[in-house]
Structure formats: structure tokens, C-alpha cells
Design a protein around this nucleic acid. Structure first.
Lengths: 239, 239
DNA sequence: GTCATCATGTAAGCCGTTACATGATTGC
DNA sequence: GCAATCATGTAACGGCTTACATGATGAC
């Protein structure tokens, strides 16, 4: 779960732990507030497995170090790196995904294999990285989730009568709200499925205004991400 | 969490483990499919703590044993109990909440103390048992949840611009759907809060057609629950 | 006579948390 | 110089899952 999220974020561009947490929280709203107590060990694990590696910042491409939002913080990090020999002082450890990591990511993302507890979180995470799935797998992901919700809904309706008698106002309202939410989730999924089918028939040409477009290409997207990252830094950092 | 759910269900009437799981799944849709590997140990723990006790079925009030839905199963259980000395053969263990258990339940239910990770699940569970809360605490529960969601929403909106540029179609759709859902949750909460305030001003008289009514009284409600349980059994079981 | 369902339990392990410890840098 | 934020890590523990083991009963 966590590893999938980490690898997914690193697909786009190298990041350090603190930043990964931030992206998860602020951008995706997923796994909100993953604790460092699980994040850092996960990164070490991934490094040991050879799925990620520490980025060497000695190369002239220093401008690729991702922004943190705090400009001055950036400057400090760079200074620290320049001063010490490589990375002596306690500084950020920027990780980059490896080919092995990409392999693992693809395997984790493919819900075919690990069809395990395909709960809401798992689905959301996979959807967030759906651009890295081949179109058919993406469609299957959506349809499987739809089927799940639909089944849960019909089961809920089947036992509705029995429940009603046992539940008080509060529990009843809770159950009804849950049902409503599920219905909305389903129609949202329907719209996504629809869009996906249209895309299959009439694939959109790459428009540079849209990040990720239809994206069936890992390498290309990753590079695109890095370039965008570089640009942002140029814009924001007067250094 | 689990203990709160167990105690909450036992407040109404004695149950055995298998049935508790069923109620959680079918009635509330909460903690869906709690595994027995956590349910039974939790029951043992609660028994050791004196929060629940095994119900002796030797007394003439055998009719209070709750239904399982399978009528024949009921009969079998009764037979097993009658045959052996007390409960020799491997049969169901029906638990009843104790006074100590009620104390614990009240403490757990009051989110004032354990304001910990007041996530969606925790809130849903508490709301499901909201009838056991005094009116003010009930209102606070709803308002606190509302405030939480509202804050999350405003934070999401504050960083909306930055996100947009980083997210692709899928992640964007996910985030937007999450926002919509949160908005709906909030307006649902608003309606509950409204109803709650009206109830405070104009308390509804006890109508027997409604389970739990406004319920500020634990003992009374519990007894009501037992009576209802008895009735259901009369209706359904030809024995 | 065997399959599905009901029913209870144990053991191993995963995945995460909280709490703690450390330290750099920035802004006031 | 002090608080806030950035940044990384360790240790202990918690709660729940999976897999396994056992057995009764009813339906076909």
C-alpha cells in the first residue's frame, strides 16, 4: 500500500521522504498523514530491495532537486550539499526510482494479482496512478470497483426490511447516507468508465496543456515530470 | 473500536460472537467483515475485564436467546443446551453486558476523552450508537465531525491551484469526487444537527413505532430492546 | 454421505501508529 | 536566542488480518 504510493510518486520525479508525505496529503488526500514511523522504514526497505536509490546531487543537474514549497529551505539544502563532501551533514535524502522499482510498481498497481481487500483506499490509490496502467487494465480496475459497489448495494437492499426494524433514527440515517454515497460513487464510476471507453475508440492526441494526458508510456511521462519540475523551480527560486 | 462496537450491540440484547459479526456487517455495514481472529479474542478480553459475562441459559427465560435468522439453527442450539450439563458440547457462547461493561461503553462512546484519530469509521460507529449519548454530547459529536470535514475542505481548496497543475485526469477526478463527497457529508451532517436542535427545543413524546426514539436512558432502552427481541422470536420461530 | 452454514478458537505476521531522539535552518 | 518548520530516524506496541484447526447441524 504505502510502497505503491511511494513508487507511484517517484515515477514522476525524485523526491525525499518529507516531501512524499506532503504530496500524499496535499495533492492526493490519500493515506492522509502517513506517519514518518512508517514512511522512512518503507523507504529503507525499498532501497534495500533495489527499488529506489539515493540520488547523487554532485552531477551538474542540481536544478532537478524538487521544490519543497519553502524557497529558502531549498537554498539551504543546496548549500549543505555543496559544502560537505557529497552529503555529510544531515540533509535530505532524495530518492529516485530504479528499473527494478518500476517493475515492482507495475506489479503492485496491477490489481489482477493482488485482488486482496480491494477496499476504497486501495482503489483510490490505484486510480490516482491509473495513467500508468495500460488502457484495458484501467478499464478493468474501474469495472471491478463498480461491480463491487453494486453488489454491496444490492445486498444492502435485500436485507433492508430486516434492518429497518432493528435500527433507531441515528443508525438508520447512517445506513441511508451510506447507501446514497455508494450510489453516487457508482454513477461517478460510470462516468469514468464511459470516458474510458470513448478514449479507447477515439484516442486523444497528446495535448501539452494536460499533465499525463492519456499516458500509456512510463518513461516518457517520467521525463515529462522531471522537465515540469525543473520549470517550476526556475519560476519560483531566485537562486 | 471493536470493543465499542461489541459493547454497543450488547447494550440492546445478549448476543454470541458469530451473530455480532453478522449484525455489524448486515445491519450497520460497519467494520464490514471483522475477522473472527479479532472478534473472539476481543470477547475473551472483555470477559476477563468483567465487561461482559456468559449468559446462563438454564433459567426459564430461554426465549431471550437471540435469533440467528436460521430457525433450525436455533432449535439445535436449544437442544444442545438442554441435553448436556449446562453447556458441555461445543455450542454458542451468548454474552451479556455487565454494569462494568456499560460504564466502559459510555466512556468509549464519549469522544471527548478519546479524541484520537476521529476518522470516518470512528465517527460512524459512534453515530450508530448515538442514542446512548446524552443530547448535548450527541450534538457535540455531530458538530465536531462537521467542523473537521469543513476544515479539510477549506484546506483542500486553499491548495487547489497547486494541485491542478500536478495532477492528471485520473487523480484530478479522484480529488474532485472526494471533494464532492465531503460536501455532501457536510450537508447530511447539517440536517442531522438541525434535527437534533429541534429535538432539544421540542422533545418528541415516546412513540412505540420508533425504535430508540430520543433515548436518553440506557436501562429503559435496553429493556425495550429485549422485549422487541422476544417478539421477533415469537413471530418467526414455530418452536 | 457430503456440502454449506453455523460456531469458536489459536498463531503468525503485517502494517501501521505513537512516542521519542536528533539536528539544521529560517524568521522574528 | 528562540520558536517554527524542515528533515530523518528508532523502538515499542497495537489492532487487525490470514491461515489454520475443530466441530456441530441441516439440507439435499
Amino acid at each position: 500500500m504505502l510502497e505503491l504510493a511511494i513508487l507511484g510518486l517517484l515515477e514522476t520525479h525524485p523526491l525525499h521522504g518529507y516531501e512524499i508525505r506532503k504530496r500524499l496529503r496535499d495533492d492526493l488526500g490519500l493515506l492522509s498523514n502517513v506517519s514518518f514511523g512508517s514512511l522512512y522504514p518503507a523507504l529503507s526497505r525499498l532501497e534495500r530491495q533495489g527499488a529506489v536509490e539515493e540520488l547523487e546531487t554532485l552531477e551538474p543537474t542540481e536544478s532537478r532537486i524538487p521544490m519543497t514549497g519553502s524557497l529558502s529551505g531549498e537554498r539551504a539544502a543546496l548549500r549543505a550539499r555543496r559544502t560537505g563532501s557529497g552529503r555529510s551533514r544531515r540533509g535530505r535524502k532524495v530518492y529516485r526510482i530504479t528499473d527494478e522499482g518500476r517493475r515492482q510498481f507495475a506489479a503492485l498497481l496491477d490489481s489482477e494479482r493482488n485482488a486482496s481487500p480491494d477496499d476504497a483506499r486501495s482503489f483510490s490509490l490505484r486510480l490516482a496512478f491509473a495513467r500508468y496502467l495500460p488502457p484495458q487494465a484501467r478499464l478493468r480496475l474501474l469495472e471491478r470497483r463498480r461491480a463491487q459497489l453494486a453488489q454491496r448495494l444490492s445486498e444492502a437492499r435485500a436485507t433492508a426490511a430486516a434492518k429497518q426494524s432493528r435500527l433507531d433514527v441515528y443508525a438508520r440515517s447512517l445506513v441511508e447516507h451510506a447507501t446514497d454515497s455508494t450510489e453516487q460513487d457508482i454513477s461517478w464510476l460510470d462516468s469514468l468508465i464511459d470516458a474510458e471507453r470513448n478514449r479507447a475508440v477515439n484516442p486523444s492526441p497528446s495535448r501539452p496543456s494536460e499533465v499525463g494526458n492519456t499516458g500509456h508510456d512510463l518513461q516518457g511521462l517520467e521525463r515529462q515530470g522531471l522537465e515540469r519540475q525543473g520549470l517550476e523551480q526556475m519560476e519560483g527560486d531566485p537562486l
